[in-house]
Structures are given as structure tokens and as C-alpha cells.
């Protein structure tokens, strides 16, 4: 199927989410805003994991770098929203560059562990420098920062639209990237690193590029989360928040542009709905995970891709 269809599909989702702003009831409206910000994180993760095959267990450090880069500038220096966001994104980009330079010397399981270790070290560092970071308790982002072009970002409508804007930009960027020559090299590396190297691609630099893009988008999500929801805390840099994007991407479909959003949406409502039924709602999440890996191994969107739409990006 031609490019027109998949552009139509992705732009259709963006339009649908924009329409959601006007029709969703208050609670779902808030949820979707949150899910869009988290989907940005998952899309960032997907570039490293889904497209380039870099299974990181430490992406929470990039999310956390964005969150704290943004939050600390705001908390200690009363920075405006844009400089604070920029600080968060730059922090994530720098960190992913440094981590990439080191961690990409390893591969496979040891890459998982190295990223996990670096991420743990960052989470503990956030706790250790508690006088600056307020430790595990975290801090509330000053309301002065949470204004942009005269808009109050704590307002539900503004929050939704900003989240929607960020989500749309990252979705379109991802779509563009994976159709671009670079994106194809990412996939080539994922499928067979040796052959890609023989064809003259510099595997290390390509993977580094993918990781930096991935880390930077993750940091953007972390910074946006702090800005829109008004809180920065060390739990967001913990192991759990490294596992989440992996789950979302795998559920939605690794290596698909829509997968991360679908996975994040699915997981959010799975937990939200089942927590109404039982305290042990994570039990239901666990069962769902097992069933999905058994019966939908490619993830939800991945399964669509496999069965119906083979060249879905």
C-alpha cells in the first residue's frame, strides 16, 4: 500500500486526538493528555529498541534527566517554561551521548545491564543530592514556570493541547525518520549488524545517533511531564519507569510508529479499569502481559502489520 495510506492513518490519529479535546469527558480528557505525554516517551524508546534493536533497561535516566533538567532550573532559578524545557532536553541529549559512548561498547544482555546500572546510579544520585533535588519526596514545579505565551499550563485545555502538539510533532518526526535513509540503516543494524557493517555503515556511530535521538525524545517527555503535571520526583527515574516504555512498546508493537501510543493507551486503561475491580490490579496486568506474549507476539499494531499491512512503518 502506498505512502498516501499510511500518512492518512497517522494524520488521522492526530486529527482524532484533536477532536478528542472537544468531545472527551473530563476524566478521559485528562487521561488522554497524560497518555500522549507518556506515548512520546514510548516513541523515543521505540527508536532505540523497536527500530535499532537496542534493548535498554535504563531509559528512565533520560526521562528523569529531562524532568530534573527542566524542574531544577524552574525550582531554583524561576526559569520560564521555554528555557526550562530546553534545559531538560539538553540534559537528556548530553546524558544519552555520554551513556551511548560507554554503553554501546557492549551489546545484548550486557547492554541491558549497563544501561540499568547507569540509570540506577542516576536515580540514587538524585536521592543523594537531596539538598538540591529534594530527594525522593521530589518537588512541586513553581506555577510561575508553568506559563507559556500567556497560557496557564495547569489549565486542562491548555495542557491537553500542548500534550497533543508534542505528541503530533514526535509522531510525524518518527514517521519521517523511519522512512528516511537513517531509519532504514537502523533497521538494517537491528536485523543483521555484521552485514550492515560490511555494507559500509558505521555501526557504532549509527547506534549512537539512534540512542541520542531516543534519549532526547525521552527527555522531552520527562520535561513535558513535569511542566504539564507540576511535579518532579525520583520515582520517575526508578527501574519501574525503565520497564514501562519497554512494556508499552512491546504491547503496541515494537518497530511500528503507532505501537507505542497504542501500548501506552492499552496499559493505562488496563490498570485503571482493573484497579476498580481488585486491589491486585497488577495481577491482571501480569496475566494480560503473559497472554499477549503468548497470543499476540508482535504486539497489537505489530499483529496488524503482520497480517494485514506488511509495509506499515
Amino acid at each position: 500500500m502506498s505512502a498516501r495510506y499510511y500518512w492518512g492513518l497517522h494524520l488521522g490519529l492526530i486529527a482524532l486526538l484533536f477532536a478528542g479535546h472537544f468531545v472527551l469527558p473530563a476524566y478521559q480528557h485528562g487521561n488522554v493528555a497524560r497518555i500522549m505525554v507518556l506515548a512520546v516517551y514510548a516513541m523515543g524508546y521505540n527508536i532505540a529498541f523497536g527500530y535499532t534493536g537496542l534493548l535498554s533497561l535504563g531509559h528512565a535516566m533520560f526521562f528523569g534527566a529531562g524532568m530534573y533538567g527542566m524542574g531544577l532550573l524552574s525550582y531554583h532559578f524561576d526559569a520560564g517554561a521555554l528555557p526550562a524545557m530546553a534545559a531538560g532536553i539538553v540534559a537528556g541529549a548530553m546524558l544519552s551521548l555520554v551513556v551511548g559512548l560507554l554503553a554501546l561498547r557492549t551489546a545484548g544482555v550486557s547492554f541491558m545491564i549497563v544501561t540499568l546500572m547507569f540509570s540506577q546510579a542516576l536515580a540514587m544520585t538524585l536521592v543523594y543530592f537531596r539538598d538540591i533535588t529534594r530527594g525522593d519526596e521530589g518537588f512541586v514545579i513553581p506555577s510561575a514556570t508553568r506559563r507559556l505565551w500567556g497560557m496557564d499550563l495547569s489549565d486542562e485545555a491548555h495542557r491537553y493541547l500542548i500534550a497533543w502538539g508534542l505528541f503530533s510533532i514526535v509522531l510525524i518526526f518518527t514517521l519521517w525518520l523511519v522512512r528516511h535513509r537513517w531509519g532504514r540503516v537502523f533497521v538494517a543494524l537491528r536485523e543483521n549488524e555484521e552485514r550492515a557493517s560490511l555494507l559500509g555503515y558505521d555501526a557504532f556511530r549509527t547506534k549512537l545517533g539512534a540512542l541520542v535521538i531516543s534519549g532526547t525524545i525521552s527527555a522531552l517527555s520527562g520535561a513535558a511531564y513535569a511542566l504539564l503535571f507540576g511535579y518532579a520526583g525520583a520515582t520517575f527515574a526508578g527501574v519501574q519507569y525503565s520497564i514501562f516504555p519497554l512494556l508499552w512498546v512491546l504491547l503496541g508493537g515494537a518497530g511500528t510508529v503507532l505501537g507505542p501510543f497504542v501500548g501506552a493507551l492499552f496499559m493505562f486503561y488496563l490498570i485503571d479499569l482493573s484497579s476498580g475491580v481488585t486491589d491486585a490490579y497488577m495481577l491482571i496486568a501480569g496475566v494480560a502481559l503473559v497472554l499477549l506474549t503468548l497470543f499476540l507476539p508482535q504486539g497489537l499494531v505489530g499483529e496488524v502489520k503482520r497480517r494485514l499491512w506488511r509495509d506499515l512503518p
Binding site: 525522593d136 519526596e137 521530589g138 512541586v140 489549565d155 503535571f229 507540576g230 511535579y231 520526583g233 525520583a234
Partner: peptide, 14 residues
């Protein structure tokens, strides 16, 4: 738990 209070309170205000 105080980190939950910290994370929730801004939303209560909004």
C-alpha cells in the same frame, strides 16, 4: 506517604 502527597497536591490545586 509524603512523595505521593507531593505528586498529588499540585493536581488537587488545579
Amino acid at each position: 506517604f509524603s512523595h505521593v502527597v507531593m505528586g498529588s497536591a499540585p493536581r488537587a490545586g488545579e
